[in-house]
């Protein structure tokens, strides 16, 4: 049974698209047929992070309006079999998306895929609600920072009221993904801890991604950071997806590493 998952946050710039790319990639690495849908009409970026921007011909709106077939619009990932993406429109106005149109596309994708990952636009407007409407589960991305956590709480409220599941009296299972985490600043009490944020938002943590130079390096190259299996962020995304699939793993990269004299003198940052 195909699962529809929305990656959402409320606030912009917290790492929705980066997370979406790595989560989708990691699911495909584990052999699950996965499709990523970019819902950010007018601000399409998932294709760039996935490194397939030059192969975009048709987009989600073209499919909902019947201008293109679904098979024409889907872009196959060049690194992994079983990973596809459906880009957002860069030019059309965002009202061109309709609930019926999106519902039809998702129903069609459910025939072909195990996971349908929806990359939500920022905000709490129609686009964000559209991205979450058909979701079975949600990954709420939050930074350890007050405005991001507050906006995440708003989004959790919308998941409980504005989704199809909510309308049917069911619930959308929400997972918390904390990104840009810096254990050193947490240690100095200058950043809220995982426990603080989990307690405030009251949804279980599925992963913690450390602040890492590997994330920018990956998006510069259009290669989801999870491919960089030597990096802390890449490993943290692999762990996140393993937990999402039901494995029980301890959190990594959330405690300050006590560096010995040797590594302080010779160990560079990866």
């Amino acid at each position: 049974m195909a699962k529809v998952v929305v990656v959402t946050s409320g606030k912009g710039g917290v790492g929705k698209t980066t997370s979406c790319a790595s989560i989708g990639t990691a699911l495909a690495m584990q052999g699950h047929r996965t499709v990523l849908i970019d819902f950010d009409v007018g601000l399409r970026n998932l294709d760039l992070v996935m490194g397939c921007e030059r192969r975009v011909v048709y987009d989600l709106i073209n499919v909902t309006t019947g201008e293109a077939k679904l098979s024409q619009a889907l872009i196959k990932d060049k690194r992994l079999d079983g990973l596809f993406m459906l880009p957002a429109s860069q030019t059309r106005d965002k009202d061109a998306l309709t609930y019926e149109g999106v519902g039809d596309v998702i129903d069609a994708l459910k025939e072909e895929f195990d996971f349908i990952i929806c990359d939500s636009p920022a905000g709490i407007e129609r686009g964000a609600v559209m991205a979450m409407y058909y979701a079975d589960e949600a990954i709420v991305v939050s930074n350890p920072e007050v405005s991001s956590v507050r906006d995440s709480d708003r989004i959790i409220g919308l998941l409980d009221s504005k989704t199809r599941r909510a309308e049917q009296g069911e619930s959308v299972k929400a997972h918390l993904l904390i990104t840009r985490y810096d254990p050193e600043r947490v240690e100095h009490s200058d950043m809220m801890s995982v426990q603080d944020i989990e307690e405030i938002l009251a949804i279980p943590v599925v992963g913690v991604i450390p602040e890492s130079p590997a994330v920018l390096r990956a998006s510069n190259q259009g290669i989801p950071v999870v491919h960089d299996s030597d990096s802390d962020a890449g490993q943290a995304y692999s762990d996140t997806v393993a937990r999402f699939l039901g494995e029980e793993l301890p959190m990594r990269f959330t405690e300050l590493e006590r560096k010995g004299l040797f590594s302080r003198m010779f160990g560079g940052r990866r």
Partner: peptide, 10 residues
Amino acid sequence: QSADVARERL
């Protein structure tokens, strides 16, 4: 300890 302040305000 700014993290504590953040938590309480939130």
